[in-house]
Design a protein around this nucleic acid. Structure first.
Length: 555
RNA sequence: UGACCGAUGGUGUAACUGGCAACACGUUUGAUUUUGGUUCAAAAGAGUCCUGGUUCGAGCCCAGGUCGGUCAACCA
């Protein structure tokens, strides 16, 4: 567990509740998604917060689906949300649906009517909108606002019975049309929707609005701390009003600032636009900040949890540098990812003094961070591939890989010297002729040679081939909430966010790599096998993140 | 010309509730290294949005500003 000495403002509130005894030292949170889309890393922040608080205070955390709008919701999303929460490493105490409470909610609505605190409004949606006023101008009361309790009850029951057309009537709270808080201007509580609900089927044709249902559901579940994002701050007076009118258990709502990540977008609307507009390939496209995208990209639950822990919780708007997320995944993967060698852009090297037809196997550490894991055998021979980047004909100062006449170590093998550069008619370098120093073999080096650089390689005679997908940030600017005038946020999509290497050379050991397994390609970064590996009958790797490269950064 | 919320290094979060502004990421430098990775060591970088007040003492309290965010779906 992390050594978190500093308490965030929510923990401080909980502590004060525990001192005052407001909730009898009980802590019961909940994660309340609507099953109408996929979870993203912003949700992960909320999940880690809610479940984390429950763990820290020996409390409970529910998973509740706020499924009050049958038109947009589906069981498919319920499944994917469950799956993502579980994958993140959390197990909820109770699993509930707002729709479980439809009967209770309906009873409460009638109760409000009987108290004279709610009425059926015959106005159209347009009329209601038009008479709501603006933040600075009070709204106008509906002509139906003062119907009798009997009439309201009758009308509401007939709404429930399906006697009226969709959109013809709604149930509204009777609060204050001139309230400075727009949400208190007689908000809609129930609307008619003759839609089939994914759980209650055709049992209902009226459905509660989120604002009516949400706080009441928390109350039903005995939630102590209803944690939500900042935009619901102005809704709180309404939730409190409802609870007060009904005289029921009162949870404490606490709002925090949602996560924003640099170089990406987090809103459901924009994510949907990226997927539907084919800017990315799917909801689990590894470039997306969706949980499924991050998973496919090779992010681990531990790294995401650690990230959520490090970013903290507060109320001010924030935009977290993706570099922090990348730090978290590198930190995790460095410890656990087995190493292998892969050459993305191969340059053939012929070792002229290595006997033709001869091969051998060299020993390579599985993970230098964990030597106890032992080593693997890697084939070596007269012809190998090295990275094109690891040779320069005219190197800048400070370059210490291979150059004409220069020497480097082939990792876990020998030191070589470049003797000759072969080019095609166009002047492109096609091959290098090198010599090796037999006495410089790794582990038994008696050559006395000192080289500055060590490069990775793959033996040509036993190289496997793989497709490698190199991902980069999805956008070219860090802050997508700050778009210059006349521009659209989609104008800043990074055209190079995906580069496909169709034929990389990798250690043949990798043919056995299982789907989703995570590797470090020495000197290149962390990669995981993509599910497409199955389909295409060829190895496909996704680059999770590069290794830090202080040389490349400066050049 | 409304209500609510917020403002601390480049980024994010702290500061025992009034006592020398700290930690992490990022950046830079050095050491180690058969990954220009890791690890280790160090440095630079804010005087806490502004103005005034209370106080021996203010990032924390008070007053007034400024700037930013949120709110006007029969969405959540």
């Amino acid at each position: 567990m992390e050594a978190t000495e500093h308490k965030n403002f929510i923990e401080q509130i909980i502590d004060s509740h525990n001192e005052s005894g407001r909730f009898q030292k009980r802590v019961h949170t909940r994660f309340p998604p609507e099953p109408n889309g996929y979870l993203h890393i912003g949700h992960a922040k909320s999940i880690c917060l809610n479940f984390g608080l429950a763990q820290k205070y020996n409390g409970k955390c529910n998973l509740r689906f706020d499924d009050t709008n049958p038109e947009t919701e589906d069981v498919e999303y319920v499944e994917s949300i469950r799956n993502d929460v579980r994958w993140l490493g959390f197990q909820w105490d109770g699993e509930f649906f707002a729709s479980d409470y439809f009967d209770q909610l309906y009873q409460w609505a009638e109760q409000l009517i009987m108290k004279g605190k709610a009425y059926v409004d015959d106005q159209s949606a347009e009329q209601i909108a038009a008479t709501r006023g603006t933040p600075t101008v009070p709204g106008k009361e509906s002509p139906f606002r003062n119907r009798s309790v009997e009439e309201n009850l009758d009308l509401f029951r007939r709404m429930k019975a399906g006697e009226f057309e969709e959109g013809s009537r709604v149930l509204r709270a009777k609060i204050d049309m001139s309230s400075p808080n727009m949400h208190m201007r007689d908000p809609v509580l129930y609307r008619i929707k003759k839609a089939r609900h994914h759980r209650t089927g055709d049992r209902w044709c009226i459905y509660p609005m989120y604002d009516f249902a949400h706080g009441l559901c928390d109350s039903i579940e005995g939630i102590t701390h209803s944690i939500c994002t900042l935009e619901f701050e102005v809704h709180r007076p309404l939730y409190d009003w409802l609870i007060e009118q009904l005289g029921i258990y009162h949870p404490q709502q606490i709002e925090f600032a949602r996560l924003n990540l640099s170089y990406t977008v987090m809103s459901k609307r924009k994510l949907l636009e990226l997927v539907e507009g084919k800017y990315v390939n799917s909801w689990d496209d590894p470039r997306l900040p969706t949980i499924s995208g991050l998973r496919r990209r090779g992010y681990t639950p531990a790294a995401i949890r650690h990230f959520a822990d490090k970013i903290g919780v507060a109320k001010r708007d924030n935009i977290i540098d993706v570099a922090l997320l990348e730090f978290c995944i590198r930190e995790d993967l460095n410890k656990i990812a087995p190493r292998t060698m892969a050459v993305l852009r191969p340059l053939k090297v012929v070792i002229t003094n290595y006997p033709e037809g001869q091969t051998e196997e060299v020993s390579a550490l599985i993970n230098p961070e964990m030597p106890q894991l032992g080593s693997r055998l890697v084939p070596f021979g007269r012809e190998i591939y090295i990275e094109q980047d690891d040779f320069m004909e005219n190197p800048p100062k400070g370059y210490f890989r291979l150059t004409p006449g220069g020497e480097v170590r082939l990792k876990y093998a020998y030191i070589i010297r470049c003797e000759e550069v072969i080019k095609d008619a166009a002047g492109n370098i096609t091959e290098l002729r090198c010599i090796y120093f037999p006495e410089s073999k790794s582990g038994s080096d008696t050559s006395g040679k000192k080289v500055k650089g060590t490069i990775h390689w793959v033996a040509a005679h036993e190289a496997a081939s793989a497709e490698v997908r190199l991902y980069d940030r999805l956008f070219t600017i860090p802050d997508l909430s700050d778009i210059p005038e006349g521009k659209d946020w989609k104008d800043f999509i990074n055209p190079h966010s995906l580069e496909v290497i169709p034929d990389a050379k990798i250690e043949k050991n990798m043919l056995q790599a299982s789907i989703g397994s995570i590797w470090q390609f020495e000197r290149l970064g962390y990669f995981c096998t993509d599910p497409d590996t199955n389909k295409s009958n060829k190895l496909v790797f996704n680059r999770t993140v590069t290794l830090k490269d202080t040389w490349a950064k400066a050049h």
